[in-house]
């Protein structure tokens, strides 16, 4: 069985379509919505409108680049959630009627599982069981992966996601949205010891990030009272020490989990796994623990349909199909 699957992702502010054949990505088209930048965050109604505008062109291009035609397709996959309702609705409704029109099966995919399974788009995928640290603008999770479709969240954030900690810091310092890549770049020239951000004390494998941005806010407020140019003069050092705390905190928890679950493979996934400091420290951590590190290729870290396609591939092989009544869900649980 070498299924050809068209996958669609529309959970937030990326409209994406991919074609996979037997679990290999033939095309992966991503249209990123730039309109949200000036609002400092994703505006749901604008996101929904843009998905509607882009979906046909994106699907068309994905098919064209793949060298396949619609009659070659064996199934249509879509992101059912979690995500923004209006955004998810566009991809879901399109996928349902497209599959129905072609008379082929429909496959629903959980966006968070897909992030984890993006690690199987590599030539040397992780061995089961493994742990995956999934970090994005909306999520921070440590996932125990027993098999392709058998996963358990063993730790997660109790408030903000790691990506949110970046975006909120960016907002405080007047950096453009999304702030992650900007802070990552500025941090490269900075001193990680500039300010000692407190380590959030949350028991077990869960996370908390909301205190970090509050600490940053007070730290900057106090210093700005003495020096109005404090941020501009120290932007690199502020970013370096802030980012260092986020990343080392993430990895301390992952290390703790790795010891508890005694796995031989560790993976990272999600938009924040494109972060250079996270990649660097992840490599160091794996070396120390003597486990194999896995990071998806850059194009499969941020939201993309390729990862939806690989998740759908495993569901296709397992015979897990959705019916035409499928509707999006916005949150887990």
């Amino acid at each position: 069985m070498k299924p050809v699957i068209l996958a669609i992702e529309s959970s937030c502010d990326e409209t994406s379509a991919a074609v996979l054949e037997n679990g290999k990505v033939l095309s992966n088209i991503v249209s990123s919505q730039l309109a949200h930048a000036k609002y400092g965050g994703v505006v749901p109604e604008i996101a929904s409108r843009l998905h509607q505008q882009d979906i046909i062109a994106v699907v068309h291009e994905a098919l064209e680049k793949s060298g396949k035609t619609r009659t070659d397709l064996d199934a249509i996959a879509f992101t059912r959630g979690p995500g923004l309702l209006g955004s998810l609705l566009v991809g879901t409704c399109f996928a349902k009627s497209y599959a129905f029109g072609l008379g082929i099966p429909l496959i629903e995919v959980n966006h968070m599982q897909a992030h984890v399974l993006a690690n199987f788009l590599s030539d040397s995928p992780p061995a089961f069981p493994f742990l995956c640290l999934t970090v994005s603008g909306g999520h921070t999770q440590i996932v125990l992966v027993r098999n392709y479709l058998d996963m358990e969240v063993i730790g997660q954030t109790l408030d903000d996601a790691a990506g949110e900690a970046y975006d909120k810091a960016g907002k405080i310092m007047g950096l453009p949205y999304p702030a992650g890549p900007v802070i990552d770049k500025l941090a490269k020239e900075g001193n990680i010891d500039f300010h000692d951000f407190p380590i959030p004390s949350i028991p077990g494998l869960n996370f908390s990030f909301s205190g970090l941005k509050t600490n940053l806010l007070y730290f900057l407020r106090d210093n700005l009272a003495l020096n109005p140019d404090f941020i501009q003069q120290n932007i690199n050092d502020i970013c370096a020490s802030y980012q260092h705390r986020i990343v080392s905190y993430l990895l301390a928890k992952l290390k703790k989990a790795a010891r508890e679950y005694k796995v031989k493979d560790l993976a990272i996934a999600g938009g924040v796994s494109a972060n250079s400091e996270l990649r660097r420290q992840f490599g160091e951590t794996c070396e120390k623990l003597q486990v194999r590190p896995h990071i998806p290729a850059f194009q499969f870290c941020t939201d993309n349909a390729g990862m939806i396609g690989i998740a759908a591939h495993f569901k296709y092989l397992a015979g897990e199909f959705a019916d035409l009544e499928a509707v999006p869900f916005t949150r887990e649980g």
Binding site: S48, R49, Q52, I55, I56, V59, H60, R70, G86, L89, V90, G91, T92, C93, F94, A95, K96, S97, Y98, A99, F100, G101
Partner: peptide
């Protein structure tokens, strides 16, 4: 948007 997305999928 539900109507238009559904219609587009069928047409395509």
């Amino acid at each position: 948007r539900v109507g238009v997305s559904t219609a587009k999928g069928l047409c395509m």
